[in-house]
Design a protein around this nucleic acid. Structure first.
Length: 303
DNA sequence: ACCCAGGGAAAGT
DNA sequence: ACTTTCCATGGG
C-alpha cells in the first residue's frame, strides 16, 4: 500500500473534502463508514472516502480523508497526481469567486462552503452516472454506481479487502438491459447500455476541442443525455467552468432570485444565467448555489 | 394513496 | 420547432 500526505495550507485557498464530495457533483466516491450523501449528513466530520481510478488502464483504489489541515491518502498506486487532478487542488478559488456577482445569496453560499471545489471525474463514469441521475435522488444515484461496480467492475484487492473498479465501456456495453433493470436502474437501463456501446464504437466523450455550446450539443448524441446532463458532464468532468446545468434546483433559484433570466428555452435561459453568474466560472458559482440552497440555505433570505 | 427526485425520448401538434 | 406524455423506482 502506498500512502502520503498533501499539505492543504500550501494551496493558497481553502479546501473542504466533504463538501466537494457530498455536494451532488460526483457519484464516483463513497464513504468508508457507509453513510449516505444525503440531507441529514453532518458537516465537519473527517470521514474516509474511497474511489477507483485507472492508471495506464489498470484499476486502482484510493482512500483519502481531510485531517488537521492535511489530505491523507492511502492507495494501490501513487495517488498524489490523481488527487490533484480529480479534486482540482490547483484551482485558485479566490480568483474564481471574484468573477461572481456579489449578491447576498451567493456570498452566503461561498462563505458557508468555502473550500468546496469542482470535481474532475473520469469522463466515462461521469457520463454514466449522470445518465442515471435523471429524476433520481442523490443517495440513489450513488447506490446505482455502487451496484454497477459490483456487478460489472473488475475486482481490485486493497488493504485486505476486495473492491470493484468502475466498469469500462466494454464491460457495460456487454451488460443486458434486463441485468441493468435488475439493478433498479429503471428506464435508464437501456440508455446506459446503449451509451456504453456508443463509446466502444468510437463516439467521443472528451469533446474539449469544441467551444462550449458545440460541446454540449455533441454530448447529446449519447442516449439519455440531454442539455442538462451534457452540462453536468462538461462541468464536472471536462473542465467547462462556464457550464450551468439547468436542473430543478437552479430553475427554482432562477425563478426566485433571477426571474429576468428565464427565457422560455434551455439555450437562451442558459446564456442569460451564465452571464448573470459571471460568465467564465458561472458553473463554479452555480455549484456553490446548488449545494447551499439544497441544504436549506437561503430559506431566511428575501421571503 | 400521492408526490417527488440534479430529465430525456418519443409521440403529438 | 415547440409541447405534452410516458417512463421505473424508492422514500417521504
Amino acid at each position: 500500500m502506498e500512502q502520503g500526505v498533501i499539505d492543504l495550507s500550501a494551496l493558497g485557498s481553502g479546501f473542504d473534502l466533504q463538501s466537494t464530495l457530498e455536494s451532488g457533483q460526483s457519484y464516483l466516491w463513497w464513504r468508508e463508514d457507509g453513510e449516505d450523501f444525503d440531507d441529514t449528513t453532518q458537516y465537519g466530520g473527517e470521514a474516509w472516502y474511497l474511489t477507483t481510478a485507472r492508471v495506464d488502464g489498470d484499476p486502482a483504489v484510493i482512500r483519502v480523508r481531510q485531517h488537521e489541515g492535511r489530505l491523507e491518502w492511502e492507495a494501490t498506486v501513487d495517488a498524489k497526481p490523481i488527487l490533484f487532478r480529480r479534486l482540482r487542488l490547483d484551482d485558485d478559488l479566490g480568483s474564481i469567486r471574484a468573477t461572481a456577482p456579489d449578491d447576498e445569496v451567493i456570498e452566503q453560499a461561498y462563505d458557508t462552503y468555502w473550500g468546496m471545489r469542482l470535481v474532475n471525474d473520469p469522463p466515462f463514469g461521469s457520463l454514466i452516472s449522470f445518465i442515471c441521475s435523471a429524476q433520481m435522488r442523490v443517495s440513489r444515484i450513488h447506490g446505482m454506481q455502487q451496484s454497477l461496480r459490483e456487478a460489472f467492475g473488475t475486482p481490485v484487492e486493497f488493504d485486505g479487502s476486495t473492491y470493484h473498479a468502475y466498469p469500462t465501456p466494454e464491460q457495460l456495453a456487454e451488460a443486458t438491459e434486463t441485468q441493468l433493470r435488475d439493478l433498479s436502474l429503471g428506464y435508464r437501463a437501456p440508455y446506459v447500455q446503449r451509451s456504453a456501446e456508443l463509446v466502444t464504437e468510437g463516439t467521443p466523450i472528451d469533446v474539449r476541442d469544441l467551444p462550449y455550446e458545440e460541446a454540449r450539443e455533441a454530448l447529446t448524441e449519447f442516449v439519455g443525455v440531454g442539455d442538462k446532463v451534457a452540462d453536468c458532464i462538461l462541468l464536472f468532468s471536462l473542465g467547462y467552468n462556464e457550464a450551468v446545468p439547468l436542473d430543478t434546483w437552479i430553475r427554482q433559484t432562477i425563478e426566485e432570485y433571477y426571474p429576468d433570466c428565464e427565457r422560455g428555452n434551455y439555450t437562451e435561459t442558459s446564456r442569460a444565467i451564465r452571464e448573470r453568474l459571471g460568465g467564465e466560472h458561472a458553473g463554479y458559482t452555480q455549484t456553490y448555489l446548488f449545494h447551499f440552497l439544497r441544504n436549506g440555505g437561503g430559506d431566511d433570505l428575501g421571503e
